[in-house]
Structures are given as C-alpha cells and as structure tokens.
C-alpha cells in the first residue's frame, strides 16, 4: 500500500532500508539540500501504509530525486535518482515513482518537453524497465561512468558497456517526437555533451 508523498529533509534520517543497499548512492547533505531547494516538487518518496515503524512513522519504501534543466527545445526534467527498498522491489514501485515525476513535470509550471535519465549500458534490467515506461535510447554517452583512473574519453570509437551510459528519453506531447530516435543506440557523444 503505497502513497506518494513529498520528501522532507528529516527523511534522510529514515532511509536505512533503502540506502543501505550498496548500489544506492548516499550523497552529502549539501547535495540533497540543493535538490530540496531548487526543485522542491521533484523530490518525493513512497511510503507504505501497511508498514508502521516503531516510532509511528510509515516506512519509506523508495524515493525519486528529479530536476529540470535545459533551454528551449532542450527544456526537460531529469531523473537523478530513483531507488526502492529491497522489500518493495518487483512490484512496479520505481515505475510508479517515474510516472509521478512525469505527471508533475508534464504539468505547469514545468511543462517539460521530455524526461531523461542515464543508465549503465550493461544494466539490462533497468533498461527494460525504462523501455516499458516509454523511454528509449537517445544516445550513448561514452565514458560517462569512467572513474578517475580511467581518464576522460578522447574518442567515441572505444565503447565499454560498464563505463558508458545510455541517455534515455521519453518525450511529452509538446516535444512532437524530437526525443525519439530509432537509431539512438548508434548515436554517440562525450560526457560534456550532456551538460545543460
């Protein structure tokens, strides 16, 4: 039983069931505050009405951190993080959070042209999830997940599924199909090309 609720700064103290997952990033306070301040409507959580914590709060089962950026036709919302606690996986909760972001940013005052996100090229499970939600690969960002030791990519010819990201997009009606490319997987760009 999930309800979608605004994310509060104090929720950061109650995320262990979600954030103890080693693949979920734990950002510095300043980063979370930046999102709370700049995009207050786009940071929200799912709470479980059937799971009450000993302190009386409803358990947080997942959350979404989003933002808006770009100009003109590039004006869009971006999924920075969407994550779900292990106990509430495989029940379409991440989809529900993505749909909520779509609803909010397709409406005023955001009215974005498209939503985008980055996903590792080898994360087939996530890619399938996003495709099911209507996202498609717009381009491949070569070396997006490079570590400091990997250095910045200097060519687009060398691709690595565990280092590259797919820039996946879902266009809203007003985008008139500009964010959908049938050959998106073949289109390549550098990480600096995806800065807005």
């Amino acid at each position: 039983m999930t309800t979608i609720q605004p994310f509060e700064a104090t929720d950061l103290l109650n995320l262990n069931n979600v954030n103890l997952d080693v693949l979920t990033e734990n950002f510095p306070l300043e980063f979370y505050f930046e999102y709370l301040i700049l995009w207050p409507e786009l940071f929200f959580k799912s709470r479980e009405l059937t799971k009450i914590q000993p302190n009386g709060d409803l358990e947080i089962s997942g959350y979404m951190m989003g933002k808006t950026e770009g100009k003109g036709p590039e004006w869009h919302s971006h999924i920075t993080a969407v994550t779900v606690a292990p106990e509430f996986r495989r029940i379409s909760l991440a989809s529900s959070l993505c749909n909520a972001l779509e609803t909010i940013t397709d409406n005023q005052p955001h009215s974005v042209n498209f939503i985008d996100l980055f996903v590792k090229c080898d994360n087939n499970l996530a890619i399938k999830l996003y495709e099911k939600l209507g996202y498609s690969v717009f381009r491949r960002v070569v070396g997006y997940y490079n570590s400091a030791e990997d250095n910045y990519p200097n060519t687009l010819t060398k691709i690595q599924d565990d280092k590259d990201a797919f820039d996946m997009r879902k266009g809203m009606k007003r985008d008139a199909g500009r964010s959908t490319r049938s050959d998106g997987r073949k289109q390549r760009c550098f990480p600096h090309d995806v800065k807005f």
Partner: peptide, 14 residues
C-alpha cells in the same frame, strides 16, 4: 530566497 517554502520546515527540523 529561492522561495522554496514547503521544504523549510523539514530543513529546520533536520
């Protein structure tokens, strides 16, 4: 200053 009033109560509490 950015008029993000809704989040201020939670930030104060944190």
């Amino acid at each position: 200053e950015r008029r993000s009033y809704s989040k201020i109560f939670g930030m104060l509490e944190l």
